[in-house]
Design a protein around this nucleic acid. Structure first.
Lengths: 330, 330
DNA sequence: CGACGTGCCGTGAACATTCACGGCACCGTG
DNA sequence: CACGGTGCCGTGAATGTTCACGGCACGTCG
């Protein structure tokens, strides 16, 4: 049951041929007004809707589809990127299929792989797994430089941004640096692995490091708690780099609750450049990531991949810059 | 150029038949290991990827696709809904195609209509337009009761929530009520049309109304400014309903900047139930909307629509309840 | 030696639609 | 009447893949 109603059913119902139904449905010429109406009525009566597969199969309009795996919908950073990706894709005539990053990577790819032409997302896991999971499907890895063939990437030049931020903080008098890192559960549960930005931070501050606290959660409250913990353990800290803006928001919030003057006693810097940072007191200073550039560069790569023969294509890598956004928290 | 590489090309390259290529690609039985490898190599060499259209055409697995039009990516309320919709859809084996609500409605629908089975979104415009724009495509209208056939809806019982909130505020001593409404540019640019929730609010407060200010922007800062304006014009206001949480965040923020005690002098209540409300000082009291319920009910309807014959189906309407979330701002 | 099962592979059909082309009736014109 | 043009409609072909089935070679067993 649930037999699909095809164009032939409509044709029979209206007493015409397939082609005439097509003409009626697609507002084409060579059909009389009465016939068109009769066909339309029949289609309506039967609830006919052309199969999108059969249609796209024959009129291969090359309507490209891009599969976007969103790391988290609870962090505006990712939804901003998704938004930019969506509007950019619409401009270029691309379709976007979205999937949340829940469950096993292989499951997600399983769902998407048959439906899209290019896969895009923040894939943290091992490259080999990723490459294996989607054989033949080109992948654009966001914020992760990949080396395997078939894996392209858009990288964020955050290291330079951190160096710049630390330098500027020094000019403003900061001498004792601390950081709140995010828990990176890559693989085994609860296993903490330092994030790349922690390494860049530690290299930048050198011996002026007071300490690093790893937050339990990649959230506002998680960042707030970790910030409090950091200052409890290292009270002499006078500048803190928060893993991202969301957590930095919690830090500013918690500093206010603890009666810690920002930026008087502690300067707080986030990463991302969320506009949400303007809504807090004091407004958040942040290393802003050009999310729009990230999206457009990704789409550039996607377009190249769609055009090319895919067989003979070397990994493409692009980089977006960061920019200091001095507000008031640092 | 750009000639698509089909299964026949791979078959020729590997010196086998179509079916053998299928067997190799889909990990099927009845194929020797060496042949499979040879086919896989050939496919890799040619960059072959099966046409998703042809595949889905023949194995009509009924992989339903849902078109989701997201009103705004800058408001967590909508991204929350999208997130719930996405994960719910994944569980039910649905595909989700996302489109941002930019440009003309007809353009958006034009892009999506050929690709999806059901359309879902916050469509504000006139029903007739909507109905016309997607003939034959079932639509689930979010937060708007629709009357035309083919237009189903999930409605939020916000009126009851507002009544409950006002009652509770009265019990807490509030006597002078104000509201910040959102500018609703439906149709002509800049034309303000009162939102439904303004009407519900005014009916609930009766003669205890001090005033209503319409915000320029549906944002944090827009809400903050409007809140300030409201208190400037009606200093005796002791309770304010903000159009949504995002704007309420701005109100709390601005109250702090203006030295207005919350909830001491003014009680502030938002609408939506965003977790973001916890991150501000004082935490935001809000009329929480069950976004997850909204998403799941929407998917329920979508499933019914996908099963049914569509022809003989009456408009389906569901309602989600609201729940007061007492935090500290009221 | 013949019958039968099994591993491996290939061919016709089907999926639902659109495109290209051809046909039929009708009308007007020379 | 012959001819060409036009409005309307229908038939073969094509799209790229999978499913159902059939065939061939080889080995085993009675």
């Amino acid at each position: 049951m649930g037999k699909r109603v095809t164009i032939l059913d409509v044709a029979a119902e209206a007493g015409v041929s397939r082609q005439t139904v097509t003409r009626a449905m697609n507002d084409m010429a060579d059909i009389s007004v009465s016939t068109r109406q009769r066909v339309l009525d029949a289609a309506d009566r039967l609830g006919y809707r052309p199969s999108r597969f059969a249609r796209n199969l024959v009129t291969r309009k090359k309507t490209n589809a891009l599969g976007l795996v969103v790391a988290s919908f609870r962090n505006p950073y990712y939804t901003d990127i998704a938004a930019d990706m969506l509007s950019g894709a619409a401009e270029r005539g691309w379709q976007v299929l979205l999937a949340p990053a829940v469950g096993e990577l292989s499951d997600i790819l399983e769902r998407l792989s048959g439906q899209v032409d290019v896969l895009v997302g923040h894939f943290g896991g091992p490259e080999a797994d990723l490459r294996e999971a989607c054989r033949g499907l080109p992948v654009v890895n966001l914020e992760t430089v990949s080396t395997l063939p078939g894996l392209h990437s858009v990288h964020v030049g955050l290291e330079a941004g951190i160096v710049e931020a630390i330098g500027a903080l020094r000019e403003r008098g900061a001498r004792r640096f601390g950081m709140v890192d995010a828990g990176y559960s890559r693989g085994t549960l609860g296993a903490y692995e330092p994030t790349p930005r922690r390494g860049w931070f530690e290299r930048a501050v050198g011996d002026q490091l007071t300490g690093v606290v790893v937050a339990d959660e990649d959230t506002i409250s998680g960042g707030g708690h970790a910030f409090g913990e950091l200052l409890r353990r290292h009270p002499d800290t006078d500048a803190v780099l928060m893993f991202n803006d969301l957590m930095a928001l919690g830090a500013v919030q918690n500093a206010h609750a603890l009666g810690i003057d920002v930026p008087g006693r502690v300067r707080i810097v986030g990463v991302d450049g969320l506009s949400l940072g303007e809504a807090v007191n004091p407004p958040l200073t942040t290393i802003s990531i050009d999310r729009q550039g990230l999206a457009s560069k990704t789409l550039d790569i996607a377009e190249i991949l769609a055009e090319a023969d895919f067989a003979s294509i070397a990994p493409i890598h692009r980089t977006v810059r960061t920019e200091m956004l001095w507000r008031a928290s640092a």
